[in-house]
Design a binder for these strands. Structure first.
Length: 487
RNA sequence: CGGGGCGUAGCGCAGCUCGGUAGCGCGCCUGGUUUGGGUCCAGGAAGUCGGAGGUUCAAAUCCUCUCGCCCCGACCA
């Protein structure tokens, strides 16, 4: 309930982001003792409610595509992690290791899961016997731990809440179809629920998941022009099946290795929607995920007025059943204060209800996405429910459209290395650059070095039909890559 | 891990150059007042001055070491 101004969303995005998360009571910082205990985050009730809404939407889509939820242990034997060569190399630097239990030194160190392919692979090896057992379609909601060096609330934390899906299939085609299907579900969550436009595509060799055959990604673009990898789906090929001996007996009576996939989306998606939709007044939550969709601010002077207004509030509550509603009946705060407070917290619609409105059996409906008076309208009680639904849908669509337009303004194409470099500032984000690419791992590393941390975010699904020249090698190619600096 | 900035009440900061025992704004508590865009008034609570060591009669202030936070890099599904 501070009256301090927020940092500017467009000018000082980093400051704005850190500040709004604390101010809106989405998250807080836990104690840092010992000093190495860094990068953890307390998710407060308002932030958790946002996560629950996201979770509900995503979980429903998982269930609708035949997946079931299960749960696996947090601690994984070190030897499991080491079974897949690329996997251990990728994760070793960020593992937290438990060496003691019950006061005794363990015979083998245990790793706090950085992801669960290994334990789940181990279990699948025991559960899968025949082609009739396939496919296995399981998802886990939980948290994982990766000892990250540079952390940032929601976007990169040491421990994070997420879901990880793990599936096993008889054929490569099925596994690939599953991988792409889950990426599409992530796209729907991002765009239709979080109102976050995302670029969909495949990761380069050097950016793919440790142990995967192919990694697909959804990439969003923050207002400061940095890319944020917002969800990934991996076709693991037979790498984990071989490492954990996940085999099935096929119709032809021979033993075959399964094809497995994994896919994960974390609370980083919340970071994306928090960062993307805000303005200098605070958050703007997309209605479909907003913890509070509508807040009613009652206005009165005398006790009689109070009684009349609060009576009307009860009436409106009934009219608005089905929306996530909060009544701000806090005493001693002026309406103006409450207006600003709820705007800061990102509530899409505010209803102002005072004696004048009660007399006319109307209420003032104010939109978070349209500032000041122009976003207000007086609506009769009878049509209030209908109007609110319509405005919520309109706000949802508007947030997405605005974000899409901004992304379009920050998406460039480069047809030569010089042109590419002219688009890249010395530091900080600048947007997406589309460019023809025929380079290899070494070329990618070279670009990263030469352009100060710019990487290939994805080879987008949206590819050109005309060939062009690779900005690095000069070779003719039909492949386009999208480059950016990432979070 | 490199470069830069900063640690003083819950939050934002002043005081440090030139040592003398801590202050401002917001928030918080109490009472009153106000309530259609961040009410006003009065009273009050709250700080090992990031930590350790040193110099000194005396340290927020000077010296040494150390820890943390933020920003920019490196690292990172």
């Amino acid at each position: 309930m501070s009256v301090q101004k927020l940092p500017s969303h467009s000018q000082d995005f980093s400051d704005w982001y850190n500040e709004i998360i604390m101010r809106a009571e989405l998250a807080d910082t836990p104690p840092r003792v010992p000093e190495q205990l860094r990068g953890f985050m307390v998710l407060r009730p308002y932030g958790y409610a946002l996560w629950e809404n996201l979770q509900a939407a995503l979980d429903a889509m998982f269930k609708a595509t035949g997946h079931k939820n299960a749960y696996f242990p947090v601690l994984i034997p070190m030897s499991f992690i080491a079974k897949e060569k690329d996997h251990v190399e990728g994760f070793k630097p960020e593992l937290a290791v438990v060496t003691h239990g019950g006061g005794e030194e363990l015979t083998e160190p245990l790793v706090v899961r950085p992801t669960s392919e290994t334990v789940i692979g181990h279990m699948y090896a025991q559960w899968i016997r025949t082609y009739r057992d396939l496919p296995v379609l399981i998802n886990q909601w939980g948290s994982v731990l990766r000892w990250e060096k540079r952390t940032r609330a929601f976007m990169r934390t040491a421990e994070f809440l997420w879901q990880e899906g793990h599936t096993a299939h008889a054929t490569e085609e099925e596994a690939e179809a599953e991988t792409l299907q889950m990426l599409e579900i992530y796209r729907i969550l991002a765009e239709d629920w979080a109102a976050v436009p995302v670029l969909t595509g495949r990761k380069s060799e050097s950016e793919k998941f440790a142990g995967a055959l192919r990694t697909y990604t959804i990439e969003s673009l923050m207002p400061d022009g940095r890319a944020l990898q917002s969800g990934t789906s991996h076709n693991l090929g037979q790498n984990f099946a071989r490492a954990f001996d996940i085999q099935y007996q096929d119709r032809d009576n021979t033993l075959k290795y399964c094809w497995t996939t994994s896919w994960g989306l974390s609370w980083r998606m919340l970071g994306a929607l928090i960062g993307l939709h805000g303005d200098d007044k605070g958050l703007k939550f997309p209605p479909k995920l907003a913890p509070i969709q509508v807040v009613i601010v009652p206005i009165y002077r005398s006790d009689e007025e109070r009684a009349a207004v609060m009576g009307a509030v009860d009436h409106l509550k009934t009219a608005l059943s089905g929306v996530r509603l909060e009544v701000d009946d806090r005493e001693g705060l002026t309406p103006g204060f409450k207006f600003n407070d709820w705007e800061m917290r990102g509530v899409p619609i505010r209803i102002e209800l005072g004696p004048r409105d009660v007399a006319g059996r109307v209420a003032v409906v104010a939109r978070r996405d349209i500032p000041d008076k122009s976003g207000k309208e007086s609506v009769g009680w009878d049509s209030l429910g209908e109007t609110v639904q319509a405005r919520l849908a309109d706000i949802q669509a508007g947030l997405f459209r605005t974000a899409q337009e901004r992304r379009a303004r920050m998406t460039f194409t480069a047809s030569s290395w010089d042109e590419f470099m002219s688009l890249v500032p010395e530091s900080g984000g600048f947007g997406f650059i589309r460019a023809y690419w025929a380079g290899d791992d070494a070329d990618e590393a070279w670009v990263k070095q030469a352009a100060g941390g710019v990487t290939i975010r994805a080879f987008p699904f949206d590819q050109p039909t005309e060939p062009g020249r690779c900005i690095r090698t000069g070779k003719e190619t039909t492949q386009v890559a999208v480059f950016a600096r990432a979070y």
